[in-house]
Design a binder for these strands. Sequence first.
DNA 1: GTGAAAGCGCTAACAG
DNA 2: CTGTTAGCGCTTTCAC
Lengths: 340, 340
Amino acid sequence: MSQKNLTISDVAKTAGVSKSTVSLALQDSPKIKPETRKKVMKAAKKIGYVYNRAAANLRRRSSEMIGMVINDLTNPFFAELAVSLERSFTDSGYVVMMANTSEDTHQQDKVIRTFCEHGAAGILICPVFGTTQSDLDPHISRGVPVVSVMRPIDGGECDYIAPDNINGTLAVTQHLLEQGMTRLVFLGGLPHTPVYQQRLNGFTAAVQKAGIKAENIEVIPCAPTQEAASIAIEKRIKQGEPPQGIVCYSDIVAFGACFGLDRAGLKVGQNIAVTGFDDVMACSAFSPPLTSVHVFTDQLAKLAADSLMQRLKNTDRPFSNQSVLPKVIVRESSRLAVEN
Amino acid sequence: MSQKNLTISDVAKTAGVSKSTVSLALQDSPKIKPETRKKVMKAAKKIGYVYNRAAANLRRRSSEMIGMVINDLTNPFFAELAVSLERSFTDSGYVVMMANTSEDTHQQDKVIRTFCEHGAAGILICPVFGTTQSDLDPHISRGVPVVSVMRPIDGGECDYIAPDNINGTLAVTQHLLEQGMTRLVFLGGLPHTPVYQQRLNGFTAAVQKAGIKAENIEVIPCAPTQEAASIAIEKRIKQGEPPQGIVCYSDIVAFGACFGLDRAGLKVGQNIAVTGFDDVMACSAFSPPLTSVHVFTDQLAKLAADSLMQRLKNTDRPFSNQSVLPKVIVRESSRLAVEN
DNA sequence: GTGAAAGCGCTAACAG
DNA sequence: CTGTTAGCGCTTTCAC
């Protein structure tokens, strides 16, 4: 092991051809006849040559690396999404550099910059809320294309892929309404964020369509964490007149809500219905199994990867927004003895 | 946006200094006086220059990229570990390229090769079972150091970091024994793997130390998936004489076991105790909350990152094995009405 | 088909 | 302290 840096020149020497022949051969160029190619490959293997893509990219002024910037990989939903994304890109022959921003704008800035410095051909990002195009601009001046997933970029000159949040909560709210519930809460999320607004809009649309009286509807925003949600809902329950159903901003919020309701003495799936959004894997293992809005991360990932790769080929396409319709997965948490 | 490729020469021109001054300034060299440095930085920002690390690395013959190769990112434990690892490296100024191998040797081969071609300074790997040093050799001939996590590499010339599997299962088995259980099963895992053997050894050591009769002990290996585990345990229960406690190879296996037991009509945490290993986040949300052996992924990640970075500085240290003692987290799944 | 030569953007001596 | 010069390993005209 630990030979010195072998270059195509070394390969050329042992194969008895010239540098450029080796280069061409390594690229499967039709200019090289199969015979010579074989010879070159054998020589390369023999001396343990490993191709230096950095050098090639430098010369060729391109790369097949993409930077993946995720807001919160400790959130199971984003972890699942990241895995899907990684797979989509790897399948297409790209290598992905990954970084977590922990919902921190500075960190995000740094990471994007670093990826660009390393020659990322494109950036895939689940941006921190509030990210604007001008946050990105200074780093991607080389014309690196960006695709954002899950959350839009304000003023974003980029493609954007997300689940159809509105129809997602609309559908799951209707699922509760169909069971005859009339007093509902929408819980969790940060009011100034687009995702919150969309999910809330879906909820609102459903209750209005069902002719539910406004005074029976409550909206309780809170940080989308388990803890914040459990506290918020516990407090609400203590005020009396519990709702029949709680439509949560996300699964994490729903998990928190269930814990809070438990502390408040309510039985989810019996006294009160709870639904999540995202349908992370833990939903089916939860107690009670959580009804949720399934987001097809694989599909999202595929669209995102495709968009980015399209744009890599063709820089000046118009920017597109794509959304994927999610699907309500009914489990026990949304059952309710309606006589309640 | 989309200026052409700006180089240090452009910066030099607009700052009115020479190329090398810019290069030095960008590296915070003490040879450059702060004043000049400021001027250079301002010029760089002004024209929207972005540093080309690939070129720098090529020249300097080094890089600060590391390749992270994970066997199964869809497994929540490895996903959590990957996140910890990413954080450790990013904190130290490295950029991490990530790839999933799906427990597939070919895929792993390809990924390692690709990372090396891209100039990874080091490789961090949770290897596919059965990976040997000779699988790695052809790719890392440039002397790229490797650190393996969770699973050893056969004949591995590398550092190795893992939880103390033996003492982990030993401790969790003792937890069951202390409750007076005498009929135990060790469930799940592939017999030919080192991790299986270690975890089983811990189990065996505990029951022997407690003087449990051999005929009261059963070992039921199976693929470490939810499905395989649920089927295996259901089949076992149908044979009658159920055990009092089941020590599982991993959380995933334990989740599966719980489902299987449920189908078989047993109540986990009442009629029968179940324990996991890894303590993924879903354990606490599971029904019933799953007793598990907590693996400190953050610590593992830190050790792994440190090892790799040490070796990057100092190539010829002896290889070390480090293990982290895990901790039993008792939850409801391991309770048992002992009169059973 | 194959080889020679120039150069991608940067760093690292070595002079000034 | 700053500028000049020669490459890092590869690709790519352009002759042969």
